[in-house]
């Protein structure tokens, strides 16, 4: 018997440091894979370029070895890239950061509007063109 729902499991996971750290690793490794593909470079070729072993690259891509500033710069160089790092203020519908970095509360009506827009988007995703258009046609005539 399952003791927690998906929602409960996911909500608790997203608050944890391990989840957030892995999010950064996934972001970096996805960018590396994209650039490797674009440049036509294999793991072993990348390893040769930065003078490490191929298994080391595999470990980095698996997230088993931590990236250092040095390893990121070396990999970026090897992939003909620079590195840009941004710290992004957390934003959500309950609190935005204005131009001066102060947290502001959006108006209540706007929060409602955002919720309605989300609901509408979800409805449209599950919109079945065939049955819905038939229903519309039937009702119109």
């Amino acid at each position: 018997m399952s003791d927690q729902t998906f929602h409960e499991l996911f909500t608790s996971a997203r608050t944890e440091l391990g989840y957030k750290v892995d999010g950064v690793i996934v972001e970096i490794t996805e960018q590396i894979k994209d650039r490797m593909k674009a440049e036509g470079i294999s793991k072993s070729e990348l390893a040769d370029k930065i003078k490490v072993s191929a298994p080391y690259i595999t470990k980095l891509l698996r997230g088993e070895t931590n990236f250092t500033a040095e390893s990121i710069v070396k990999i970026a160089d090897a992939l003909s890239c620079g590195v840009e790092i941004k710290l992004v203020p957390k934003t959500n519908v309950n609190g935005w950061v204005d131009l001066f970095g102060k947290t502001i509360e959006p108006r209540r009506e706007f929060q409602v509007w955002v919720q309605e827009a989300r609901t509408y988007r979800n409805e449209m995703k599950s919109f079945d063109c065939t049955t819905s258009s038939q229903a519309f046609f039937h009702e119109s005539h």
């Binding site: 996911f10 989840y19 996934v26 996805e30 593909k37 698996r62």
Partner: peptide, 30 residues
Amino acid sequence: ISKSRRQCFLKLVNGFDRTADTGLMQNEER
């Protein structure tokens, strides 16, 4: 695994979130 292998569990949740928001991951290790 949320109890016995917490780090694995967190990585999987990250994978689902990433896929839902930005698409299928390119990194075949994940």
